[in-house]
Structure formats: structure tokens, C-alpha cells
Design a protein around this nucleic acid. Structure first.
Length: 1090
RNA sequence: GGGCGUGUAGCUCAGUUGGUUAGAGCGCUGCCCUGAUAAGGCAGAGGUCGGGUGUUCAAAUCCCCCCACGCCCA
């Protein structure tokens, strides 16, 4: 097949100046102008509505909080969330990609509180829930335009127009449906949880809010903690009722003592009964703690009366410190409170080893109380004020009451020791006042009961990396606790539970708007929103309690409950009948991707709800990414400004480079990565430019030759070894890439790409260069094969990489395929199909051959380096010796490449290298160790000491008797070392020897090549086009002058540098002075004007 | 305090079921090549494999302890 030459090429000229960010902007414009993104997204949306023909690949996008700006923590998962759907689209699937917004919750409420200048329950309610929520609604989407801009600029295709918002009534109604289903299945109950309360705000705080509070680094342990504060350190005696002795207990919160209901001991620990010599008091406590009190001078001499295990104390009754709850002492004739209980959390780090229990005021206390059947006594309001039951301190703030409580106890002789302690303690993030922990009523989902199903369903999920699923997530599921889904907040989906004002046990759960309208006697369609300001006022008559009015409980949902409901709620399931089937058919979804921090967040809530509702996992494949840290290894911080703005980075280096950089990092394997701008810059050089350069080469010569690609060029089967080799490599590359994409192993993609670029640029093009320069002979089939193969390789690699680097691949595709009219019907690489190559193009043996050849070349170049012989200087002969027949064949097949790379005239191959090398033999530990075990050491020494004759025999016959053993050839490793005094090197499977003898002819040619080099440098400096013909004026002397008088050499120089004439001149002044082997050469080159 | 992960060259990371002299890319230094490249090639320097024990003929790899860092939980 002859190339069609001398016509104008259909390939557009490459731009003089490469400007990747500008090209990306042009591609964005192109996608907009041609509706490319929209068309890809439309396919997915159609599949979601049950229309369209392509099968659906279902992707769920986790909703970010709409109150922050996008940063690298979003860009990394965003890139992953773009690559996979792009790949699946090219594979022929329709991928719906709806962006989601997490609109509810504390972040926006906090912002609005700041903006309105109001804080806490009382102020918000005074302001009005309707007004407060209106402010949240108005403010929550403030950054959506910036998100859209950033996401678009990064090349992520996602549907913003058809987005979902957790504050949409349809979404919220589905959340109600989800909760109602759980309710109907008996998975919801009302219970208590000990929560931190900010008394000034009068509200419980979330963990998130607690973490916003003051954080100090402990000067000694260097651990981050809460703010340090001074608290009382009080040791109190509790009088036993069955013995004239007391139990000593320690507390830093005297205000919890009025609510004391029990004392806890560790059942396994030893306790002592002692008599204090000074006072005669008999007391129980843990001996190590006793010693501590003595050491600190708090206690004098004691007399040991007995030693006993904690279990021996369990059940013993003591007198209540205060009378307030004394009636709880017994219930139905059985001791209920004021007794010793066992608890394994009791430690000997501080206190007495006997721990005061107030079940309402501590997590551990609460659990112990629950296990022991103790009642829950909480005489403290959310404002931190004692109620009437604590008669002596009623109306006082608990922290203020501490002093009075201590005075009272001291007056009654109950205080063993009073001191102060400085310790870290959580404080309110707004008021900086200490938080109080107290048990509050809330609503729970019974997750503990679901554990076995959660674990079983997790086994169906493909986690990347695997250990997150088996380790972190799996462990978390195995120990999952019941989920507190209620929050005492305002801007959220209200919990749809209505309770009777007469009978608190009379409750109903509402599952839809229609149901509520019907119960409340409202017109169908009259409720158009579900936020608190709308539904809090909806009441109806109790069905059970005559005269009772049903009112909604005040709480809203944890916003994680909403995001976990996203698979159903984004499609308004099950109310929206049009999408019902789609939702049901596509559970679990195919793919999600988020950060490691979502293990307890979105991953978990999706999984819990999918298991509870459908007993299925929520997703099939998940990629978990790690945290993106700043270059200094610290968290990225706006305040520290320790990272560059993403949009600035993109404007400087392009989104492709940023994407390729992120996707190649450890962060796609859930490990933390350090972001560095330099890393992005290097990615331009090592990833983007190699592909562009290969393209640039093709275009340069195709245009010079007037070559244009045809559709056949994408299917031809070239005969030449070099062409067959690169096609084989491309087949391998596409296979590898497809395998990585299919396995969601994105971190391997870019390394595979750089390998194929290396093969293409540094071997295929480099070795094939001259095929493109030859004269424009008609009927030059090899030239056509060269163009066609290079073209095909570029198109294939471009398509294969399109999901990862969508801009430069589109730019190339437009030039390679669309411009040349070969684009079939699609207008974008992203609407084309993933490359599918004929697998018979793969030739593994050929790939091995080229590896051996490249090894031989490297050895040859290393010899030249060592011998200090420049590659420019031709040599006469290279000998490659190898016992491997395959290597020898490969060397002969590619002798032209070897000779060209090494600049040598002739090649010889040899089988026997024994004259060149000494052979050393070593045991192959891996093979032999398995067989010999402990005898390994001795045999290895014997093998190392074998004489050359024995080694030769082993090589010849394949085995050798050694004492009692017989070793075989594959049980040893033979290495070669070139004998001294030769220009040779031995490598894996071969020895390369150079003949360094220089004949006068070789010497002359070397000088000619030097001259060519000087002229080429001048051409480049002058900026001449590669096909520009030139005239040369020169002045020189000696050997160089002699060389130029040799017609053959003159011709060589002329041909290499495209010189029309080479003329000696001693007159021109503005010549460049060069030097070759100490001889001055003065040169002037000018464009040839024919 | 618990769970999970990480610790290997100046930097970013590979390192299979334990097995020869621990590798790659980038960076650095030197040399070289260039009729595409914002390039490329060859070589060199640079490692107590976080520390310590143990198991083994043999440990970066397996056990135990410790240290540091990260995330989540408490």
C-alpha cells in the first residue's frame, strides 16, 4: 500500500506554542458548543427513567455539605468519580451522574447563627423557627456556583441541573418513608444517650460541635485535648449499712453526688480493708490508690485488716449521701440503689478504685446503671440548673452548687479529702463554658440487632483497598451500636413521630405527606414542605386516647440518616412511580467513591439502611481515598495557607496534570498523600508531554510529506518487526488498562501509560525516525506502514486514556480523528468506544526479543561510556555473545536498530562467551532452600567453590553430583564477569563486546558526524524548519579539512544536514567558531535559496 | 485508651507464597545523543528497610514489644 503523498495533509499543524490550560479552556468550550457533556449525561438520565437502550451503570454521588468551597479533599474523590463513569460510558453503559447537596445540619445552622447573631435554643426559638429555617434555606446554596465552576474546570462531568438536595420535600418525604419502614419493622425505639450539653446554649452538642471547641496540646503528653481547667478533687466516704465502715470514692464533679445511686468496684481487683490509725476509721479501697493518698500526704498510717477481691464487695448496701432520692433504696422488697456493683471499666489510674455512679451523668455510669437495672435520675435541666427535687440547691447552677455541696458534706463529716485538680475538660465551642454530660431522651435505630446481616452484606462489597472493608469497616460493623438518629435542632428533616399530649406512650409514625394530610384532615396537596415550621403545627386527635392531641416530637434527623437514605430519596422513592422500578432494579449501585473519613459516615449509613430495608448492600464497588495533606505533611489549612489554590494550579498546569497526579498517588489506596505543586508540574512533563510529543512528531512529518490517515490505517496489519512490536505493546497496554479500570485499581493506570509512552517515544519513534525522512518516493510501503502504525497507536492510546486525562485526549482526538474525517458519527473522544484491538496482534515473544535488544543496546552504550568513546564516533564491530538462542535470533532480527543506536558498522553474534567471561556460580536459594532446608548453608558454600570444569559440566549435562546430592542447572545461578582489558560488559543473558580499533575511515566518519552535530546545533539555534535546505560556508584546517575533501564524507554531511552546498570560505567574518578534536571549525549557515 | 493503616534512597513509592548484591520514577552529579519533543540515553553518588527481640539454613517480608505519623472511635 503506497502512501498518498504530496497532497496537503488533513492533519492540522501543531500550535507553535503549547499552552495546556488554554487548550483545556477550548475543549470546555467545544463540549459546551456541541452539547457533548449534556449528551453523555442525558444517556444516563434516560436510563434512570427506563428509557434509552444502553444498559445502566449506576453511580451514587455522595452529597457534600453545600456550605463549604471545594478543596482537594473533594477534587480527589471527584476525579475518581469522573474517571470510572467516563470509562463505563465508553464501554457502552449509560451512567447517571447526579450531583447532590447535603443541605441540612449543623454547619449551615452554625453559620446562620453567626450571621443572625443569635445562639442557643432560647434565642433561636425567640427568633422563630420559620425565620431561622428560612435563613438556612436562603444561605445553604451560597457556594453552588463556585462548585459548579471548579468541578467543570476540572473536567468532571456531572449533572448539576438535575441535582438532588436533601432539603427538597420529595427527598424529605422519602426519608420519612425510610424511617417509617424501620418503625414498622420494629427497628426504632426511644431511649437515652449521655450527651454533652452546653448549659448556656441550653442544647446538647454533637461530637462535631464538641470538636469545634477549644483544643489544647498537653505540654507533657503532647496529645491534643480539651481546654485545661481547675476542678474540685473530692474524696467522699459512703457509710456501709451492714458494717461500721465506709467506702471511699473520688469525684471531680461534686454536683453529680446528689444523683449518686451506686458505687462500682472492679470485680477482679484486690481491695483492702484498713483502719486509719489517727482516726480509727475503717475504710475500703484499692491498695495502690491507698499508697498514693499516703504518698501525697493525704493519709497517715493505716492498719491492714483484710484483703479481698472486688467481687466480695459487690451487693453490699450503703447509706445515701443525700436524702433526695432515698426512696429508690428498695423496689418490691429488693435492694435497688445505694449498693456496690461490679464494673470492669474501673481503673486504678486515679481515685480510690471505687467509683461513684450517677447513671444520668456519664457514659460509663449510664451503661452500668442499665446493666444493673438502676433508675435514671436526672435533677438537672439543660440549662444546668438543679430542679426542686434537690431541695438544698434547687435553682442553682450545678457548677455554682459544687461549693455548697462540698461545704454540706464537710459539715456532715463525709469528706475524706478535698483538693483541686487541673485537667483537660471539654468546653463549649461558643461560650467556652464547661460542658455537662447528661442522659437525654432520643430515638434509636436498632443497629445491634442487624449486625449479622450487616457483616454478611459487607462480604458482598468489593472494597478498594480491600483492607478498609475487612478491617476498619468490618470491625466497625461487628461492634456497631444502636444509632441515635435524632437531633435537637431546627434545620433538618423532622422526625415523623407524633405523640399524644395525654399519654406519652401513645405515638404514631407517619410515612408520607398524604398520610399526614389525611390524619390531620387537611386537603390533599396542602402540605408542600416538610420542615419544622410547617409540620410542627400540624396536630390531630389521638386514635387511642380520648381527648388527646397528637403533636410532633421536637427532634429532627441526624443528617447522616438523610444522606444514607439518598439511594431512595434522590428518586423520591417510592412515591415517584416513574422511577420506582429503576430504584428497585439498581440496588445495590455499581459504584461509589469517597474518603476514608466516610467509613463511619456515608459508607456506614448507606449500608445500614440498605441492609435494614432490603437486606442488601448499598453498593458493589467502592474506592476509598485517603486524606490529601499539605506539602509539609500537615492538614491543609486556609489559615496557614500551606497549599496552593486548586484553580490557580489548574490555570498554571492544567486539570489533566492535576488529575493524573492525584490519581497516581497513594491517596487512591486510602493512604494519606502530601500534595505538592511540584508534583503537578512534574506530571505535565512525565505524563502529558510524552503523548503530545509523539503526536507532534507525526504531524510534523505527515504535513511535510502531505500524508493523511485513512480509515484503513486503523486496521492494517504491518509486516515489519518494529511496527508489529509497538502494536503488540499497545494491545498489552489496553488490556492492562482495561483490567485496572475493571478492578477499580486506578493507581496503576498512569504508570502503565508512562511505560507505553516510553516504548513509543524512546524506542519506536526513535528507532523508526529515518523511515519518515526518506525521499518522497511514491510506492514507499514502509513509509506508509510507519505513518499508519504511528497514527493507529496514537489514536488507540488517546482513547484508552480519555477517562483519566479528558482534555488533552480530546484535543488530540479532534486533530487526529475529527479533523481527518475519520470520526464516524461521534464528535468527541468521550462519546467514542473504548479501544478494542485484535488480540492476535499481541506477540509476547517479539516483546521479549525487543527487551533483549534494548538490554544489548544499554550494555553497548555502557561500554562506550566506560571506554570514553562518544556515540558519534562510529566503530567497526560489536559482538554479542549469548548462550540463549532466542536472544541471538532477536539480536539478528533487530541488528539494524542495535547498529543504529550504537553507531557501529557490523554486528556478530556468538554462542560461546567463555573466552570473554569468567563464570561464577551461586546457589539458587529460593529453589534449593526449599529442598535442602537446614543443609542449605553447607551446600551453598560447596557450590560457590566449584571449579570451572565442574561448572562447565553442569552447564553441559544439566546436573552435577555433589557428595550425596545431585544438583541441577535450575538450582544454581550463573553470572558472568567480563575478563579484564576488554571493551565489554556482561548483563542478563548476554555479553556485549565492542571492537574499539579505529581505521582512518572510521576516524574520518567520526569527524564528519561531529561536524553534522555542530551544524545541527546551528540549525536549531537559527530556528530552521526541519525541511529547510541550507548553504554552509566553512573555514577549517587539518584533519577536518581533509575529511571534507573526501567526497563520501561531504555527501554524508550534506545529506544529514540538508545542505545544498558546502563551500570553503576564508573571508566571511560573522562565522560561529566551533571546535572538533582541538581543530577550529568556523561555520556560517544560511537558508538555501534555489 | 481501642480499631485500622503507614514507616524502605533527598522526595514519591514498588518489593509476590521468607531466598542471590533491596528496586523504580523524580531530584542531584558527570558524560553522551538529538532531522520531533517543554525532550532523550548511559553512568555515578545516595539505604542501620522506624527501633528492639525472637522464629529460621535464610527476615524489608513471619511472631512479640516499643517509637513516630495519619484516620476513625473512646
Amino acid at each position: 500500500m503506497a502512501p498518498r503523498l504530496r497532497e496537503a495533509s488533513t492533519l492540522r499543524a501543531a500550535p507553535a506554542q503549547l499552552d495546556l490550560p488554554r487548550q483545556e479552556q477550548e475543549m470546555l468550550q467545544l463540549w459546551d458548543d456541541n452539547g457533548v457533556e449534556a449528551s453523555s449525561l442525558r444517556l444516563g438520565a434516560e436510563a434512570a427513567r427506563g428509557r434509552g437502550t444502553a444498559p445502566a451503570f449506576v453511580f451514587f454521588d455522595g452529597p457534600p455539605f453545600a456550605t463549604g468551597l471545594p478543596h482537594y479533599g473533594h477534587i480527589l474523590p471527584g476525579t475518581i468519580k469522573d474517571i470510572v463513569p467516563r470509562y463505563q460510558s465508553m464501554r457502552g453503559f449509560a451512567v447517571e451522574r447526579r450531583f447532590g447537596w447535603d443541605c441540612h445540619g449543623l454547619p449551615i445552622e452554625s453559620l446562620v447563627e453567626d450571621e443572625l447573631g443569635i445562639h442557643g435554643k432560647a434565642e433561636i426559638e425567640a427568633h422563630g423557627i420559620a425565620a431561622f429555617n428560612a435563613a438556612c434555606r436562603a444561605g445553604v446554596l451560597r457556594y453552588t456556583e463556585q462548585w459548579r465552576k471548579t468541578v467543570r474546570r476540572l473536567g468532571r462531568w456531572v449533572d448539576f441541573d438535575n441535582d438532588y438536595k436533601t432539603m427538597d420535600p420529595g427527598f424529605m418525604q422519602s426519608v420519612w418513608w425510610v424511617f417509617h419502614r424501620l418503625w414498622a419493622d420494629g427497628l426504632v425505639y426511644e431511649g437515652h444517650r449521655v450527651q454533652p450539653v452546653s448549659p448556656v446554649l441550653g442544647t446538647p452538642l454533637s461530637n462535631f460541635e464538641v470538636a469545634q471547641g477549644p483544643q489544647e496540646r498537653d505540654p507533657i503528653t503532647r496529645k491534643d485535648g480539651h481546654k485545661r481547667r481547675q476542678d474540685p478533687s473530692l474524696t467522699v466516704r459512703f457509710a456501709l449499712e451492714d458494717e461500721d465502715a465506709s467506702l471511699w470514692a473520688w469525684t471531680t464533679t461534686p454536683w453529680t453526688l446528689p444523683s449518686n445511686l451506686a458505687l462500682a468496684v472492679h470485680p477482679e481487683l484486690d481491695y483492702v480493708k484498713v483502719r486509719v490509725v489517727e482516726t480509727g476509721e475503717v475504710a475500703y479501697l484499692e491498695p495502690g490508690r491507698l499508697a498514693d493518698y499516703q504518698q501525697r500526704g493525704k493519709l497517715g498510717e493505716v492498719e491492714l485488716l483484710a484483703t479481698l477481691k472486688g467481687t466480695a464487695l459487690v451487693g453490699r448496701p450503703y447509706a445515701p449521701l443525700f436524702p433526695y432520692f432515698a426512696e429508690l433504696r428498695e423496689k418490691a422488697g429488693k435492694r435497688l440503689a445505694f449498693r456496690v456493683v461490679a464494673a470492669t471499666y474501673v481503673s486504678t489510674d486515679a481515685g480510690t478504685g471505687i467509683v461513684h455512679q450517677a447513671p444520668a451523668f456519664g457514659e460509663d455510669d449510664y451503661e452500668v446503671g442499665r446493666a444493673e437495672g438502676l433508675p435514671l435520675v436526672n435533677p438537672v435541666s439543660l440549662q444546668g440548673v438543679f430542679d426542686a427535687r434537690v431541695v438544698d440547691f434547687a435553682g442553682q447552677h450545678v457548677k455554682d452548687a459544687d461549693k455548697g455541696i462540698m461545704q454540706l458534706l464537710r459539715a456532715r463529716g463525709r469528706v475524706v479529702d478535698q483538693d483541686v485538680i487541673v485537667h483537660p475538660y471539654p468546653h463549649c465551642y461558643r461560650t467556652e463554658e464547661p460542658l455537662l454530660y447528661m442522659a437525654l431522651s432520643t430515638w434509636f435505630v436498632k443497629v445491634e440487632q442487624l449486625r449479622p446481616r450487616l457483616v454478611a452484606n459487607n462480604e458482598k462489597i468489593h472494597w478498594v483497598p480491600e483492607h478498609v472493608g475487612t478491617g476498619r469497616f468490618g470491625n466497625w460493623l461487628g461492634g456497631a451500636r444502636d444509632w441515635n438518629v435524632a437531633r435537637n435542632r431546627y434545620w433538618g428533616t423532622p422526625i415523623p413521630i407524633w405523640r399524644c399530649d395525654q399519654d406519652p406512650t401513645d405515638v404514631v409514625c407517619i410515612g408520607s405527606i398524604a398520610e399526614l394530610e389525611q390524619l390531620a384532615g387537611l386537603a390533599v396537596g396542602s402540605i408542600t414542605d416538610l420542615h419544622r415550621e410547617t409540620v410542627d403545627d400540624v396536630t390531630f386527635a389521638s386514635a387511642k386516647t380520648p381527648g388527646g392531641v397528637m403533636r410532633r416530637v421536637p427532634e429532627v434527623f441526624d443528617c447522616w440518616f438523610e444522606s444514607g437514605s439518598m439511594p431512595y430519596a434522590q428518586n423520591e422513592y417510592p412515591i415517584n412511580e416513574a422511577k420506582r422500578e429503576y430504584v428497585e432494579n439498581n440496588l445495590p449501585c455499581d459504584f461509589i467513591a469517597e474518603g476514608l473519613d466516610q467509613t463511619r459516615g456515608w459508607f456506614y449509613t448507606l449500608h445500614v439502611l440498605a441492609t435494614a430495608l432490603f437486606d442488601r448492600p448499598a453498593f458493589k464497588h467502592v474506592i476509598v481515598n485517603g486524606l490529601v495533606l499539605a506539602e509539609d505533611g500537615k492538614k491543609m489549612s486556609k489559615r496557614l495557607k500551606n497549599y496552593p489554590d486548586p484553580l490557580v494550579v489548574v490555570d498554571e498546569y492544567g486539570a489533566d496534570a492535576l488529575r493524573a497526579y492525584l490519581i497516581s498517588s497513594a491517596a487512591v489506596r486510602a493512604e494519606p498523600m502530601r500534595f505538592s505543586e511540584k508534583g503537578v508540574r512534574d506530571t505535565v512533563r512525565t505524563v502529558i508531554l510524552p503523548l503530545y510529543n509523539a503526536y507532534n512528531f507525526l504531524v510534523t512529518y505527515a504535513r511535510a510529506d502531505g500524508w493523511s490517515p485513512t480509515a484503513e490505517d486503523l486496521h492494517s496489519r504491518p509486516g515489519g518487526a518494529l511496527d508489529r512490536w509497538i502494536l503488540s505493546r499497545v494491545v498489552a497496554f489496553v488490556d492492562e488498562l482495561g483490567h485496572e479500570f475493571d478492578g477499580y485499581a486506578l493507581s496503576n493506570v498512569v504508570p502503565a501509560f508512562t511505560r507505553i509512552c516510553d516504548d513509543l517515544n524512546n524506542w519506536y519513534i526513535r528507532r523508526g525516525r529515518r523511515r519518515y525522512w526518506r525521499s518522497r518516493a511514491e510506492g514507499d510501503g514502509d513509509k506508509q506502514a510507519a505513518y499508519a502504525t504511528l497514527y493507529r497507536v496514537l489514536v488507540t492510546v488517546t482513547k484508552a486514556m480519555a477517562p483519566v486525562i479528558p482534555f488533552v485526549t480530546e484535543w488530540l482526538y479532534q486533530r487526529l480523528v475529527i479533523d481527518t474525517g475519520l470520526g464516524a458519527t461521534e464528535t468527541s473522544v468521550h462519546l467514542s468506544r473504548w479501544p478494542q484491538l485484535d488480540p492476535t496482534l499481541r506477540d509476547v515473544a517479539l516483546e521479549h526479543d525487543v527487551e533483549a535488544v534494548r538490554r544489548a543496546v544499554n550494555l553497548g552504550l555502557a561500554v562506550r561510556e566506560r571506554e570514553k568513546i562518544a556515540v558519534r564516533r562510529p566503530l567497526a564491530l560489536v559482538t554479542i555473545a549469548s548462550p540463549d538462542a532466542q536472544v541471538r535470533r532477536a539480536v539478528l532480527e533487530f541488528s539494524e536498530e542495535i547498529l543504529g543506536e550504537l553507531n557501529i558498522k557490523r554486528i556478530e553474534v556468538a554462542e560461546d562467551d567463555s573466552a570473554l567471561c569468567s563464570v561464577t556460580v551461586k546457589a539458587n536459594f529460593k529453589v534449593l532452600g526449599k529442598r535442602l532446608g537446614a543443609r542449605m548453608k553447607a551446600v551453598a558454600e560447596a557450590i560457590a567453590g566449584l571449579d570451572p570444569a565442574a561448572v562447565a559440566s553442569l552447564q553441559r549435562t544439566g546436573s552435577l553430583a555433589m557428595g550425596d546430592d545431585t544438583i541441577t542447572l535450575d538450582e544454581v545461578l550463573i553470572s558472568r564477569e567480563v575478563l579484564g582489558g576488554r571493551a565489554a560488559l556482561a548483563g542478563e543473558g548476554m555479553t556485549v563486546v565492542l571492537d574499539t580499533e579505529l581505521t582512518p575511515e572510521l576516524r574520518r566518519e567520526g569527524l564528519a558526524r561531529e561536524l553534522v552535530n555542530r551544524v545541527q546545533n546551528l540549525r536549531k539555534d537559527a530556528g530552521f524548519d526541519v525541511s529547510q535546505r541550507i548553504s554552509i560556508l566553512y573555514e577549517t584546517a587539518g584533519e577536518v579539512l581533509e575529511m571534507l575533501r573526501d567526497p563520501a564524507m561531504l555527501e554524508l554531511v550534506r545529506g544529514e544536514v540538508l545542505a545544498q552546498d558546502i563551500v570553503f570560505s576564508s573571508t566571511t567574518l560573522d562565522m560561529d567558531a566551533e571546535e572538533i578534536d582541538g581543530i577550529e571549525v568556523r561555520l556560517k549557515i544560511t537558508p538555501y535559496v534555489g
